[in-house]
Design a protein around this nucleic acid. Structure first.
Length: 220
DNA sequence: CTCCCGATAT
DNA sequence: ATATCAGGAG
C-alpha cells in the first residue's frame, strides 16, 4: 500500500502535514530583512528567482542609500540597478522598484497601500508579492503565498495537481484553515530549503515521507 | 509562451 | 555544464 489508510483523505493529509510542519518549524518567520512595509515590498520584488539570503546581502546597502519610497522613486536608475545587480533580473527589478515607489508616492501618499486590489496595481507586484506584503507588513492574510517551493512541495505531496500558482492557491485555501494560510507557506518554504529541495530531496530524513505519495521510501 | 539574469550547488 | 533560487510582464 502506498499511503497509510488514516490519511487517504486529502483534507486529513493536508492537516497532518500542517501539524507536522508546525512541530518541525515552530519559529518559522519571513526570512527577508526589512524595517518598513516599503522595504518588505522591495525585498520581495528582489526575491524573484533569487534566494532570500542573496536579497539580504544587497538590501542593507540599498536601504542605507534609499531608505523610503520617496528616495527610491527618484533615484538614479543606474545606481539602483548596480545596488540590486547580484539578485539577477536587475534591469527589470530596478525598474519595477522605481515604478512601484513612484506610484506609492504619487497615488498613495508615500505609503504602501493595504488593499490587495491596490497592491496588485503596482508594477512588479502580482499575487505572490502582494500576499507576502499583505500578510507580513499589515498582518492581513488574504491567501496562501505560492512560490516555487510551495508549488513543488504541494505537488509532490499530492495536495494539488495544478501548475498554475493561482489554482494551487485556491486548492490550498480549501485544505488549510485560514489562520494558518501564511504560516503554511513559510513553513513549507523552510521545509523546501532544508529537506525537500529541488535538486536533491532528502526523503529518508523527511518527517512528511509517510504522508507523501512521491517519497521514495521502502514500501511495506 | 518567452524573456529577464546573477550566484550558487551539484 | 546544468539546474535552481520566496516571479512578473509582454
Amino acid at each position: 500500500m502506498s499511503i497509510d489508510r488514516k490519511w487517504t483523505s486529502k483534507k486529513k493529509r493536508a492537516l497532518e502535514v500542517l501539524l507536522r510542519l508546525k512541530r518541525l518549524y515552530p519559529n518559522a518567520t519571513c526570512s527577508l530583512d526589512y524595517t518598513t512595509p516599503v522595504q518588505l515590498l522591495v525585498a520581495t520584488i528582489l526575491s524573484a528567482q533569487c534566494t532570500d539570503e542573496r536579497v539580504n546581502k544587497v538590501t542593507p546597502a540599498l536601504f542605507a542609500k534609499f531608505p523610503d519610497a520617496r528616495s527610491m522613486a527618484y533615484a538614479d536608475i543606474l545606481e539602483l540597478e548596480e545596488l540590486v545587480r547580484s539578485t539577477g533580473f536587475y534591469h527589470n527589478k530596478a525598474k519595477n522598484i522605481q515604478g512601484a515607489c513612484r506610484k506609492i508616492v504619487e497615488e498613495f501618499d508615500g505609503e504602501v497601500p493595504q488593499l490587495m486590489e491596490q497592491l496588485l496595481t503596482l508594477p512588479g507586484v502580482a499575487r505572490k508579492t502582494a500576499n507576502v506584503v499583505s500578510a507580513h507588513a499589515f498582518g492581513n492574510i488574504q491567501g496562501v503565498t505560492v512560490d516555487t517551493h510551495v508549488k513543488r512541495l504541494t505537488n509532490l505531496l499530492g495536495l494539488t495537481s495544478h501548475q498554475d500558482p493561482i489554482k494551487i492557491e485556491q486548492d490550498l485555501m480549501k485544505l488549510i484553515p485560514k489562520v494558518d494560510w501564511e504560516n503554511f507557506s513559510i513553513m513549507t518554504i523552510f521545509h523546501g530549503r532544508a529537506i525537500c529541495n529541488a535538486r536533491k530531496p532528502n526523503c529518508p530524513e523527511c518527517e512528511l515521507a509517510e504522508l507523501c505519495p512521491s517519497a521514495n521510501r521502502v514500501v511495506k
